[in-house]
């Protein structure tokens, strides 16, 4: 069974489930409107209350001469610094037992990556707010050290720089040790190329990789592609699947390329492709 067949099979889901996906959004919009109205009413109510108190008792405003209660003595807090790293560094994070929800750090666009990379410079409150607002904390990134670990992993894999295909998104999977970096062409047709790369290094040969991948593998010439150790085309086995799959090794990282481009277009793009690291990525 293939992903394409599953996508087609989604046509058989119940009407009520499709309708739920619409009513839930409407309910949420309704709730947001209700909360806004409630907040506005609360502010208005507070204003009316204050105005009425002022009308009844003009001296109601805070009297600076009135004695104020002594501030409550606060017990001294424990000053021990919490451990800086809450997520294991990436070398060991990959060895963590399988979790219900795979931990992943996703950057939708290079700006998100840059915000993330700059976040250790924020003050403590702003840093915490940033980490929580983007749900990084749900994925094992809680401290500045965690951020630096992620940045280090992201910089350990080659970052393709492809003319006409800006960085679209990346996904670092902490459970599998893979980084997927995807690029999407601008314009109506939105072709894309995804590079799924292993963080760990490997020097396997084309034959070893082909044997591992099984049948339906064809070798493609890497002439003019000095960064690619080999290039293997894999059959998707599904004529309606718009994606093609290629296995390669770039700078000692095993890579699977997924693209909806034709082979000759992909090869031409790979020939013009330069490799850098994400922290030095300069757009397309």
């Amino acid at each position: 069974m293939t992903g394409n067949e599953l996508l087609r099979k989604m046509n058989d889901i119940e009407d009520s489930d499709i309708e739920l996906s619409e009513t839930l959004a409407k309910r949420r919009r309704g709730l947001t409107r209700w909360l806004s109205a409630a907040a506005a009413a609360l502010v208005l109510g507070a204003g009316i209350f204050a105005a009425s108190r002022l009308w009844k008792d003009p001296g109601y405003q805070h009297d600076v001469s009135a004695p104020t209660p002594a501030p409550t003595q606060i017990a001294p807090q424990a000053t021990a610094e919490p451990p800086e790293t809450t997520a294991a560094p990436y070398e060991t994070a990959y060895a963590m037992p399988t979790q219900d929800t795979p931990m992943q750090v996703i950057f939708n666009g290079i700006e998100e990556y840059r915000d993330f990379a700059a976040s250790p410079e924020l003050d403590d409150d702003a840093f915490r707010e940033f980490i929580e607002s983007r749900s990084y904390d749900m994925n094992g990134v809680n401290t500045r050290q965690d951020v630096n670990n992620v940045l280090e992993v992201m910089d350990s894999v080659p970052m393709p720089q492809i003319a006409g295909f800006p960085f679209w998104r990346s996904n670092l999977r902490l459970d599998t040790g893979d980084v997927t970096i995807a690029f999407k062409a601008e314009g109506d047709e939105r072709h894309y190329i995804g590079f799924n790369m292993s963080v760990s290094q490997s020097d396997e040969t084309a034959e070893e990789r082909a044997a591992e991948a099984g049948h339906g593998i064809e070798e493609v010439s890497v002439e003019g592609l000095p960064e690619l150790r080999y290039l293997l085309r894999a059959e998707s086995g599904d004529p309606a699947n718009p994606n093609s799959y290629y296995y390669t090794n770039i700078r000692s990282h095993r890579v699977t390329i997924v693209t909806d481009l034709a082979e000759e277009e992909l090869l031409s793009i790979l020939q013009g492709c330069r490799y850098t690291v994400i922290s030095e990525y300069a757009g397309d």
Partner: peptide
């Protein structure tokens, strides 16, 4: 499928297929 034959895009569907491929 025929767009692929014409070497034209897959966009979001290509990604969705890829994601569901994990399940399959």
């Amino acid at each position: 499928g025929s767009l692929r034959a014409k070497k034209r895009g897959g966009g979001e569907a290509a990604l969705a297929i890829e994601e569901l491929g994990e399940c399959a």
